[in-house]
Amino acid sequence: MIREFFTKKKQAITIPSADAKNDVPEGIMTKCPDCKQIILTKDLIKTAKVCPKCDHHFKMTAWERVECLFDENTFKSMDDHLKSENPLNFPSYTEKIASDSEKTGLNEAVLTGIGKIGGNEVGVAIMDSHFRMGSMGSVVGEKITRAVEKATELRIPLLIFSASGGARMQEGILSLMQMAKTSVALKRHSDQGLLFISIMTYPTTGGVSASFASVGDVNIAEPKALIGFAGRRVIEQTVREKLPSDFQTAEFQLEHGQLDAVVHRGEMKETLTKIIRLHVKEANLHE
C-alpha cells in the first residue's frame, strides 16, 4: 500500500502536463520522443544527444556536431556573412529567416568550415534542421558549394552532414538550381581524386537527398534517420497503400543498397577518422 502510494506520487512528478508534453522540461530535463524517458539534459550532452535508454538519436544543432566531432579548437567556420534574399517576394519569408537566424545563431541552414578530425584536415558542411527544416535555398547552396571548392583547392577530404527536408520552396527555381550548383562543384572535387563522405541524418529528403547527399564515395547514415526522395504521405496517396513503418529509414536504405553503413553517433568520429586515414594512406602510396 505504502509502496503504491509512493509510486503514484513519483509518477505525478515526472509526467509533464499534456500541453507541455513535447518540449518540457526544456533546459534541465529532456524527454526522449521514442521511449519517453526523462533525461537530464547535461547527461544527454555527454552521450552526444543519444538516449541512454533506447539509443534514440536526438536532433543536433550544427554546433553540437562540431563539438562532438572535431579535434578541440580546430574548427573554423566560413561564409557566416552570407544572407538570404527574398527573390520571389514571398510574404513573411524574410521574417522567418530572421527569426530562425536569431533562434539558431546561424546565418542559414548550414554551417561550413575547415577542421581536423583525428588529426586530419577536412572541409565540412553541417546542415541544421532547426533552421527552416534545413531546407536548401540560395545561401545553403552557395555555402556548400564554397566549402566543396575550398576542399578542392586545399586537396582535402569533404564531409557533408545532411539534415534537410529538401529544396526551399520560397526560392522557387533558384532552390532547384542549388542542386545543380553543388553537383558541378562536387564533380570537380571528385575528379581531383578527393574523398567525399556523405553522412545522412534525420531527415535527408527531397532535393538534398536527390543531390549531394546521395553521391558520397562513402554514404553513411545515423540509425533510424529518415532518408528518401518523396514524402511518405505523397507516396501513400500515389500507391494507395499503407507503407511499412521502417520505410525510408537508414536501415531500410542499407537493406536496399543505398548506404555503405549505418553508424551509431557514439562511433561516428572513430569511423570517419578510420575512413579518412585509409584514403590518406592510399594517396601517400601513390606519391
Binding site: 542542386m179 545543380a180 553537383s183 558541378v184 553521391v215 507516396i235 500515389t238
Partner: peptide, 26 residues
Amino acid sequence: GAYPGKAAEERGQSEAIARNLVEMAG
C-alpha cells in the same frame, strides 16, 4: 516530376537523380 512511388524509393530514386546531376556535369 520523378515518380513518387514505393518501388521508385526502393530502387534509389534519389541516388539516380543525384548521380545524373554529377555525371552530366562532367
